[in-house]
Amino acid sequence: MIDLGSQRLKGRVALVSGGLRGIGLACVERFLAEGAEVVLTDLEAPDTDHAAATLARLGQAASYVQANVAQEDDWAKVLSAVTERHGKLHILVNNAGIDLTGPVAETSLEGWRRIMSINVDGVFLGVRTFVPLMAASGADFRGGASIVNVSSIMGLVGMSEVSGYNASKGAVRLFTKSIALEFAEKKMPIRANSLHPGFVMTPLLQEGFQRWVDKGVAGKAQDLVDLMSSKTPIGRLADPSELASAVFFLASSDSSYMTGSELVVDGGWTAQ
């Protein structure tokens, strides 16, 4: 296992959207282990059993803001919380996201707009809200401030009956390249890169597989895990911590020359 006690993000402040579970939570845990202070956002009220227990476990260096990434007003709330508590921001992980599957002819406009509002608007609003604070904080560390937008391999290659999710994640990919160019050309100390996970064992994936099972596509969720594993060259699905280690690299000074890049962590899925 990786030794996490290295404190390579000491003194930095990080914000992770959708941080209460899955890849987001793994990023929060990794950042804390590396010595950063972390603000996480998610939909749950802080006093639900799950949120309260998670936040208690994360400890004092973490704080929580209940916020929906699709709501402009909620981002204002997040900005004032981060500003009051820390006065700076070095790392922004726009991670919150949902999926949507089904034949295109049966996709409702409501469902389409919902995924766009979370997966695309949510990323845009996060970036727009925090650019000024990150620009002001970027000079604190070599490599400046770092934005990581969570796309997907579904932002690189298409898949049948995943059209809405494909479209939303493709948008994140190019949005990220454009802002990377903008910040670089204006000499703003902010880097921006997109992360492209393959299949990762998270609640999102497990719930998605369960929906396929309910539709009769497979007998049980484990059959789908086995199928996806067998189609992945590395022969298994990813653990969320394996995405967090890529986000950590992008957040750290080691990636100081990396901006506008796509980090693919997919066990070889898109190489075949």
């Binding site: 393959g198 060259p233 020359y257 990396m258 997919d266 070889g268 898109t270």
Partner: peptide, 13 residues
């Protein structure tokens, strides 16, 4: 450990 067959670009955009 989960990265294989990928291109890692580091080129300042």
């Amino acid at each position: 450990r989960f990265c294989s067959g990928s291109e890692f670009t580091m080129d300042g955009a």
